[in-house]
Amino acid sequence: MEKQLKEAVELFEEVIIYGTERVLKSIDNPIVHEFSPEQIQMMKIIDKHGPITAGSLAVMQGVHKSAISNRLKKLEEKGFVQIVKSDSDQRTKWVELTDEGSDFVEKARAILSSFISSLLSDHVDEKEVEQFVKTFRKLKEIMKLGEGER
């Protein structure tokens, strides 16, 4: 089992590292090419967990806070995110999507979902999709449990 688990981890890393960029580059839609993959990921994180602090974004994306600051500045200039001071602590700043940012995330998800569905439809059958979903639900729960233990 250890050998298979090692292979599974390596395959997972390859799909995450190379798959995301390759898929985004393959999509023939200008809306997706307007932003970097990291900016798109950031907006998806904000959409799911926001309002959120820049520090939390840095942890979730695994980068230094300065990289987050640069991404946020560009997204704020384009009107996709806004920075809001906390009511209870003026030192705390929350990042949230604007309506335009939320619309973008929704459109990007639809485009990505459609592309991946068409990419996989000829290569993956229904049972494989069911197993994939089951496995990733389990991985998600395991990783969520591990967050509180750090």
Rank of each mutant, 00 (worst) to 15 (best):
K48V: 13
I83R: 09
Q90H: 12
A54I: 15
S117R: 07
I27D: 11
K144P: 11
L120S: 09
H64C: 00
L57T: 04
I83E: 12
K74W: 00
I17A: 01
L11S: 12
K25C: 03
M143A: 07
E128W: 00
V9S: 01
M143P: 08
S86F: 02
F132N: 08
L97N: 04
S114P: 02
Q131L: 13
L75T: 13
V133Y: 12
M42F: 07
Q39H: 12
S118W: 03
E7N: 09
E106P: 09
K48P: 04
G79W: 07
E38H: 12
P51C: 10
S86N: 14
K134N: 09
V63M: 06
I116M: 04
D87T: 11
D89A: 10
A54Y: 01
E130S: 14
G146K: 09
A110N: 14
Q131Y: 07
S26W: 03
Q82Y: 11
K140I: 14
Q82N: 02
L120A: 14
A108D: 00
L72C: 09
K107A: 13
N70T: 15
L11H: 04
I31P: 11
E2Q: 08
K138Q: 05
V129G: 07
E21M: 01
S26L: 02
K73A: 03
V84T: 15
I17V: 15
E147Q: 11
I68D: 06
D89T: 03
P51L: 03
M60C: 07
F136I: 13
D122P: 08
S114Q: 10
I17T: 07
Q41I: 13
K73E: 15
I45H: 11
G55A: 12
Q41S: 01
K127F: 09
L112W: 01
K25E: 15
K65C: 08
G50Y: 05
V81H: 06
S56H: 03
I111R: 10
T135L: 01
T20F: 10
S69R: 03
T20N: 12
S86A: 08
D87E: 13
M1D: 05
S88C: 02
M43C: 12
V15C: 08
S36W: 04
L24F: 14
E141D: 13
F136G: 03
E38N: 07
D125N: 10
D99K: 01
S88L: 05
A8Q: 05
A58I: 08
R109W: 08
Y18G: 13
K140D: 14
E34F: 00
K48M: 01
L119I: 03
K65R: 15
H123F: 02
E128R: 06
I40G: 01
V133P: 01
L145Q: 10
A110H: 10
Q41D: 00
V81K: 05
L72T: 06
Q39F: 03
I45N: 04
D122Y: 05
I142C: 08
S36P: 01
M143V: 10
G55W: 06
P51Q: 01
L139G: 04
V63P: 06
S113I: 13
K93M: 02
L120Q: 05
V9P: 08
